[in-house]
Design a protein around this nucleic acid. Structure first.
Length: 109
DNA sequence: CTGTTGACGCTCT
DNA sequence: TAGAGCGCCAACA
């Protein structure tokens, strides 16, 4: 049993929750992480290590930081995320962050 | 085994 | 109210 297995379990849960996020709605790493009893960094890392096949049917762009800032990433995927959010009808600030996070914030059951 | 980085969050200024 | 910095925890080099 490798230590990566524990990470794989979290990964599956994260994918399940992210997949349950309705269109036009977003969820924060902290919310998902707290729901899974894991740290926000773990959720972020899970999505960061997602393969092209994984994120193909996964609305990973609906997961944003607590501040709603999508440009915080250093991997340059923030541009794609913000474009997808705009297509979903999520209002974004000129800075690239969610305008009204509380309005579009979705909490996992 | 040690050091650095990081799709973040919270606190201080 | 907004912006910048520091800290927690795990993976990666």
């Amino acid at each position: 049993m490798a230590k990566s297995e524990a990470f794989a379990r979290i990964k599956g849960d994260v994918l399940d929750i992210v997949r349950a996020v309705p269109r036009g709605r977003v969820c924060t790493y902290g919310t998902v992480g707290r729901h899974l009893d894991v740290m926000a960094r773990h959720v972020a890392y899970v999505l960061a290590t997602l393969t092209d096949d994984e994120r193909a049917g996964l609305p990973w762009h609906r997961v944003v930081s607590d501040t709603g800032d999508t440009n915080r990433t250093k991997r340059g995927r923030g541009d794609e995320q913000r474009a997808r959010l705009a297509a979903e009808g999520v209002p974004l600030s000129p800075k690239g962050a969610v305008a009204d996070l509380a309005a579009v914030l979705w909490v996992p059951d």
